[in-house]
Structure formats: C-alpha cells, structure tokens
Nucleic acid binder design. Structure first.
Length: 848
RNA sequence: GCGGAUGUGGCGGAAUUGGUAGACGCGCAGCGUUGAGGUCGCUGUUCUUUAAUCGGAGUGAAGGUUCGAGUCCUUUCAUCCGCACCA
C-alpha cells in the first residue's frame, strides 16, 4: 500500500459506486425504506462550508442506513427561483435563467467530488418548467378547493423606483437603491388560507416527537393561540355605519381599567375618516412611513391621534372613552381595534403617559397595596394577584382564572363572547417579480378572475425580458400578458404576479419521490417513500419554511396529491449550526473596513506585511470575506478530510469554527490510519499476538459507541471514539487475523464519514465487495460487559478516593469496602458517619 | 420590541442526562527520530501551591434546592437565530 493519496483514490471509488449504481434509490417493497433529505441549496454558484457540513451530515445518515439494510432515498435539487438572479441581471447584465443554470452546473461540479451518496438521477431545479408547471396545476386545484383567495395587503413601496421592495431591500426605512423613505402601500394579492389550519398545525406539533423541542415551541408561539373576549363598543360622534366598534382582548379581566380605545391606521373607520378629514389623512400618512416588518412596527415610536369620537364602556353608560388611531394597533390581529388598560400593558402605559390618559390599576400584587405606577404592572398570568377593580368572583386569583371568569361574566351580561384567536396570518404568496413561478390565473373583463386550463400548463416565463428599469418585467412585457379567457374565449390578461419561493420549497420533498411523473406526484411512489424519515437543515428555517411545508402537505392531501399519512411530511428534523470563521479586516483611507480572505492572511499579516485586525468568529459570509472555499480543502487534502473535519469537534446542532490547522490535523490523522492499515497488511500471516480478546472487546465497544453516536446525531462523539480506537489498534499486539478483522471493522465504522478511504482499506484487507454495501457491524453484547468497576468515593460531596469492585457486588458489601478504605479512614479521622449513599456502578458518598 | 437558543482549560469541545469536570482533537512544552525546516514517535499539559505529592479553587455572574449541581430553580450579563417579500 503506497502513501495516502486522496487525489488518486477518491475519483476511483466514485466511479466504482456509479458503475455499481450503489446510490440509485430503488422502490423495493421487500425492504424497509429510509428517506433522508437535506434542505436543498440556493444555487449561488459556489458551495460553502455550510453546504459541506449539511450534506455530509445527511450523507452519514444515508450511508449508515443503507448499511443497516434500508432502501435509501437521498436526492438533491436546487431552490432556484428568487431575487439574487434578478439582482445579478441588474448588476452584471445577463439573464436570470442563464445565470441560475450556470450556477447549478458549477455547484454540481463542486459537490460531486465530495462523494455524497446521492441519487443524482432524481435531480431537478424549481425553475424547471416541468417542476413549476406541476406547482401551477396544484395551485389551480387548491383554488378550486377554496384554499386560495385575493385580498388587499400591505407591501413596502419605493416611491422613487415605483416598485415593491422585499424586507431585506429596506435598510433603515429606506429603499436600498433609491435611498428614498419607504412607504406602506396596499396591493391586491394572492393568499393561501393557512389560517384555516391554525388549530390543526398547532395541535399536530405534539405528534412531532422527533423534532427539536425548540422548533416546536417556536412554531407554537408563531401560531399564537389565544383565548379572549370579543365585544362591541357603542360609539358617540362616529360617522354613519360606525355605530359599533368590535374589539378583541386577551385580558378581559382588565376591562374596568380601560381608559381609551384605539383602532389601527388600517381600520375601516380610520380609512373613512381619512377621506373626510385632512388632519387624519396627514396622520395616517405619517403612520404609513417605514417598512412592513413586525420589528419596524414594534420598535417605531408609539403615536396616536384623538379622533374626537368616544365609546361607551359596556358596564357603565356614563363612562366615555376617547377613540384614538394608534400606529401600534395591528389590523391583522384580532379585529384591528382594542381598548387600552395602561396599568397592565406596557405599550398602553407609554401611550397613556404620552397623551395624558388615566392609569387605573385593576389588580395589585397579592400582598401589595395600590400605589402610583411608574410602569405597567404585568405579572405572569399564572401568578395570583389581588383584584381591586375586578368584576368576577374571588378577589385574589390568578390572571388565568380571572380571564376565564371575566369572559363568563361578560357573556352572562350580554357583552360580547369568548373567542379563540390565532396570531398566524394567511400566507401571502404574490410577488411582483420575474424570476418565480407564474401564478396561473387570467383576468377577463367578462368572467373576472379565472384559472388557466391545465392543458395550457406550464404557463412559462418569457425569456425576452430586460432588467434595466426597476419593476416587474412581466408587467411591461409587450405580449406575454395577452391571452384568451379559458371560460369565454375573449381576449384577456395574464396575472403578472409570481409565487413566493417558499411555495417551491413547500413540496419538493414530495416531488423527489417521483421526479419525472407527469402529475405533481405519483401516489404509489409517494406512498412508498413518504414521509421524509430524516430532514436536516438550518435552524433559520425553524418557522416559515417548515410551517409552510406542513400546511402545503395538508393542502396537497386535500387536493389528492399526497396520501393522508404524508400530511406531516418530516418524521424527524435535525437543525444544524453554522460554520464560522474569524474575520480579517483593515481600513481604507476613509476609515471604512476592508475585509480579506483567510487564504490571503498569514500569521496576522497580508502578503505585503500589513497587519490585519482580527474580529471574532461570525457566520461565514461573502460580504465579510471570512469564507473558506471547500474546493481548496478538497484540492489540498481530499474530500474525506473535509468530510471528517466538518463532522468532528463541534456537535452538529452548534456552530463550528473553521480553522486551517484543524483541517491539517484531520489529514494527518487519516494518513496515520492509512499507515496503520499498511502496517497490518505487512504483518506475517502467522503472527500470533497475545491481545486478541482485549482487541475484540475494544472493537465491540467502538462498534457500540459509534453506532449509538450516529443514531443520536452525535457525529463528533463518533469521531472521538474512532480517534481512540485508532490509538488502541495502533498499540495492540494481536494476531494477524484479529488485526485485519479490527481494521476492517474500523473501515466500516468510518465509512459514513470517510467513504473513499474506507473502500481502499476494505479492499486491501480482504473485505468482500464494496464497503458501502457491507452490512453494518453489530457488537456482541457479551464483549461489552466489564467484570469490575471503579467507584469514586466522595466524603461530603468531595471526591477523596476510589475503589475497584466486581460489577455485581451488592451495595452493602460495597459500603463495607468503602468504609474500610485506607484513604477514607484517614479522611474520616474517626468522625461518625451520618449517612452513606451507594449508587450502584456509579459513586459512593459518605456524609459525616 | 416580541419569540427561541447558547455560554465549560490557551482553542474546538466531552461528561453515560442529578453521580470522578475537562474524554477526543488542536495548540503548547520536553524528550527521541530526522536533521535546513517540516514530517514522524513518546511523554506532559484546568488554574493555584509544590521539587513532586498532599491540598485549595474551578463550568459567563449572583443566589437557591440537594448527600451530591456543568446538569434543576430564580435573578442577571453577553452572544447568536427568527420576526411573515432573503433563501
């Protein structure tokens, strides 16, 4: 066996796998199936370390499951629609389609050398008309099923470029190109009725036991179920048709502390007033400044305007509350109108302080007395408080009890009703952009809004578009919009909005089960392969992508595109951390930061000797230039080193720090393994060692630990075990057959991480066939049991000694031995033993 | 602002889930091999005290529960992720 040379062995084994079709997913009813999926990448053009980590993780699982006898589906595709392609066209010319497909080719070429066990025959991109045409077909079905509708919704509007901006294109409230202050403007948009599924999406979280708790919690909070009271205020001085204002509150127990009512700037009453009152119009214009994000809305200064209208408190005809228009009241939540109780809500408190409104406490701390408030008193709802202006039952009760009692009391008096509300809003999917899936809908003067005929799908994007002016190229295309009405045949116009790219990624997992089917899915294939047994991706997708996918699977089932069992498409979820690196920075003449690639920095200096400032590690990003190109690592050390290194050290759910020395150390280790393999190969066949039993035990232990580590996604621990086992094997003095057996097993255990090297060792040491196809080793349980255990002895919780005892010695015997121990006797110094705790197999604690 | 997480040696991290804190790796030091350097092998490496032991301290900070806390509870600080048109 020659030197370890990944450049020669890696392509060789990749060809061998391809020739044998090892990774082709086979629909084999006789075998259990396993579907492992990593979140597919956006084709930016270059793979980065995050990709290597993500796809290696999936590959470890896929190879491990294949070795365990599963029929594995491990596909790959491209999340190919989206803004960057249009931005590239605007900045550098060219066409989004060419740019995207070029990037896909580049990235595929970078991924292949990693030796991933992917079934490339199933590859597709979401911008393939074959894919997005099926998406349009499902949209039409979902439209027919009543899951789709249109309504007005607010967007970020750039008044200079006259275009809609994405949230990320709004920087400090200004358009990224025009630098003009952004406004919120209403537009008619397409929506999915995800809110019909709020309760179900929430309840079904309980069944996702193999998802991280934090993700389920984040989703639950996002859906935001609340129980509250909805009731109507009667108005005084309001325009015709606004005799009543419906409000929703989750704290009806504070109704007796109300000091004002407030409506959203988007409330119908506010809009009505806007048309008749220039002062209101000016105020609403002020409210509409800034972007649409929740963050922008919630951190904006709270402003309000007294409308002059008043409402009557439902429990007291003489009690009038002023009605404000307030920018912090959201039209999307509840009824778009609230009552304010400043004593028990911080926002209301600040608002009341600003506008000189009364602040009347409803309850005080259980042991407290009423006092002037300097901030809102908002205890946990589960905390008991002393109600002084409550109207329901006992005076001391928890917020929860008081809320329920308040709802009951209000209903009994005919004031409103208890209502369950959700924070989750309907899913707006309209995008005023070119590079997305066209919404297959036609606007006809006679028939209104109608779906395109399925036989006319896909509604394809026109190629002849330009990006020299802002706005949607589809909108200004000379002919693309022109079409005939599918219902009456008259000339009509196509919808020019395209779909949110979250749509594309909400069903790709289903398409992988039958990527070439003429319908969106093939139910027989979906029935065999679904669900995804292990889904792997970034924590940043914890809410939106995963929630939309869960909804979309239900919508697909409702329209006959997925079997019922697939409505929760991801059985298990794993969220991996980021890859981080130090940032190297210098400053230009104006003091602005200039970033440098790690490969240009040696010992804190640039090639010309300039010292760089080192900024602590952050997520690798192109703008900060703290990126390490995986291709350099693969070029220098090979794919196995890159794979092993990204799996070692850091637990996969956490961020991993990339260090050049770490990658080099990995290469050295693999070289050691290679040399060890070579040495074992050179041993005389009749070498009779003495440590066969010890080696067999150590091997069994390694098999057991690596297996359990991979099962629990603790790849770093699997690798630590393999480091240890390498040392054990290197020092072992066993017979030649035992050594060969041990290193073959090690090759198998390493195979998910270092598949190429493992194949070389496997074949060199006489393994049969491909290592990738060899059944996963199983540890003999008898070899895992130790006869004696070492027990630490604590005295008053401090470790003072240890004894070695037979593993099955009864606790009473252990106790005697411990108390007789020399060191223990010395430490006790004759003091009386109050208590002795023996935890079998673990520890002994003597209390004096 | 709201929601979710993370914090352990010089560094990445481990700790059988309440039971010997620091596995394994990097780095560093010493010795050996080689000898220009690197490679390679062995040994050591939480801090403090010590010739070495013995001891003392120690898991972001401050309290608490427990025979026993990195692990559970309370408060607090720092960092990261998400917030509905980034993917």
């Amino acid at each position: 066996m020659s030197r370890y040379d990944p450049k020669s062995i890696e392509p060789k084994w990749q060809t061998a796998w391809d020739d044998a079709g090892v990774f082709t997913a086979r629909h084999d009813p006789a075998k259990p199936k396993y579907y492992v999926l990593e979140m597919f990448p956006y084709p930016s053009g270059r793979i980065h370390m995050g990709h290597v980590r993500n796809y290696t993780m999936g590959d470890v699982v896929a190879r491990y499951k294949a070795a365990q006898g599963f029929s594995v589906l491990h596909p790959m595709g491209w999340d190919a629609f989206g803004m960057p392609a249009e931005n590239a066209a605007m900045e550098r010319g060219g066409h989004p389609k060419d740019w995207t497909y070029g990037n896909i080719a580049d990235m595929r070429a970078q991924m292949k050398p990693l030796g991933l066990s992917i079934d490339w025959s199933r590859e597709f991109a979401t911008c393939d008309p074959e894919y997005y045409g099926k998406q349009q077909a499902m949209f039409i079905d979902m439209m027919a099923a009543g899951l789709v509708y249109r309504k007005a919704a607010v967007v970020n509007w750039d008044p200079v470029d006259m275009t809609v901006l994405a949230n990320e294109q709004v920087i400090d409230g200004k358009g990224w190109r025009s630098n003009a202050p952004v406004e919120r403007r209403e537009l008619t948009q397409w929506f999915f009725k995800i809110s019909d599924y709020s309760g179900e999406l929430l309840d079904a979280l309980d069944g996702l036991t193999n998802w991280p708790d934090k993700v389920r919690l984040m989703q639950a909070n996002w859906i935001g179920k609340s129980r509250g009271l909805q009731f109507a205020f009667s108005t005084h001085g309001a325009p015709e048709g606004f005799d009543r204002i419906e409000v929703y509150t989750t704290r009806p127990d504070t109704l007796m502390g109300a000091s004002f009512a407030a409506i959203s700037p988007d409330h119908p009453l506010a809009k009505h007033l806007e048309r008749h009152d220039p002062a209101v119009a000016a105020f609403l214009a002020e409210c509409r400044k800034g972007g649409t994000t929740a963050e922008a809305m919630e951190t904006a200064e709270k402003i309000g305007m007294d409308t002059g209208i008043t409402v009557m408190h439902p429990f007291d005809n003489d009690w009038q509350l002023p009605v404000y228009i307030a920018n912090f009241v959201l039209m999307d939540y509840g009824t778009g109108a609230i009552f304010g109780c400043p004593a028990h809500d911080q926002r209301d408190f600040e608002f009341a302080s600003k506008y000189g409104l009364a602040i009347e406490p409803v309850f005080v701390a259980e042991a407290g007395a009423p006092a002037a408030l300097t901030e809102a008193f908002v205890p946990m709802k589960s905390e008991r408080v002393h109600y002084i202006r409550g109207f329901a039952g006992a005076e001391v009760q928890t917020g929860e009890e008081a809320i329920l009692a308040a709802i009951e009391a209000c209903e009994a008096r005919g004031v409103g009703r208890g209502v369950t509300n959700y924070r989750l809003r309907d899913w707006g999917i309209s995008r005023q952009r070119y590079w997305g899936c066209p919404i297959p809908v036609i606007h006809c003067d006679a028939c209104g809004v109608v779906a395109e005929k399925k036989e006319n799908l896909p509604v394809e994007l026109p190629y002849d578009v330009t990006f020299d002016i802002p706005g949607n190229p589809l909108d200004r295309h000379p002919t693309w919009r022109n079409c005939t009405c599918p219902t009456c045949g008259a000339p009509a116009r196509r919808e020019t909005d395209t779909m949110d790219t979250f749509m594309d990624s909400s069903w790709y997992y289903a398409r992988f089960t039958a990527p070439h089917a003429t319908t969106p899915t093939d139910l027989a294939e979906a029935d065999y392969w679904m669900n995804v047994d292990q889904y792997i991706g970034g924590i940043e997708h914890a809410i939106l992508h995963l929630l939309y996918s869960r909804f979309f699977a239900r919508a697909m089932h409702a329209t006959g595109h997925l079997p019922a069992k697939a409505i929760e498409p991801f059985n298990a979820l794993f969220t991996q951390g980021m890859v981080t690196h130090e940032i190297y920075q210098t400053r230009d003449a104006k003091g602005r930061p200039v970033y440098h690639l790690p490969e240009d920095v040696t010992e804190g200096k640039l090639a010309d000797g300039t010292a760089v400032e080192i900024i602590p590690s952050a997520k690798m990003s192109k703008s900060k230039k703290n990126v390490v190109d995986p291709m350099h690592i693969i070029e220098a050390f090979g794919a196995d080193t890159a794979r092993w290194f990204v799996m070692s050290d850091s637990p996969p759910e956490r961020d991993v720090e990339w260090t050049a020395s770490g990658a080099e150390a990995t290469f050295k280790h693999l070289s050691r393994v290679w040399a060890l393999c070579s040495r074992i190969g050179d041993m005389p066949a009749d070498h009779a060692g003495v440590g066969d039993t010890d080696l067999a035990k150590a091997t069994a232990k390694a098999v057991d630990e690596v297996t359990r580590a991979i099962e629990s996604f603790a790849f770093n621990k699997a690798i630590a075990t393999l480091y240890g086992f390498t040392n054990t094997l290197a020092k072992a003095n066993a017979s030649t057959p035992a050594m060969k057996q041990a290193i073959r097993t090690m090759a198998q255990l390493m195979q998910p991480m270092t598949p190429h090297m493992s194949e070389s060792i496997w074949s060199y040491q006489g393994g049969e066939g491909l290592c990738a196809r060899a059944p996963w080793p199983v540890a003999d349980p008898a070899l895992l049991i130790d006869d004696t255990v070492i027990l630490p002895i604590q005295i008053n919780g401090k470790r003072r000694a240890e004894i070695s005892v037979p593993a099955d010695m009864p606790a009473s015997e252990v106790e005697k031995l411990a108390l007789a121990d020399e060191a223990v006797v010395k430490f006790l110094g004759g003091a009386a033993v109050k208590k002795i705790i023996v935890v079998p197999g673990r520890i002994i604690n003597v209390v004096i």
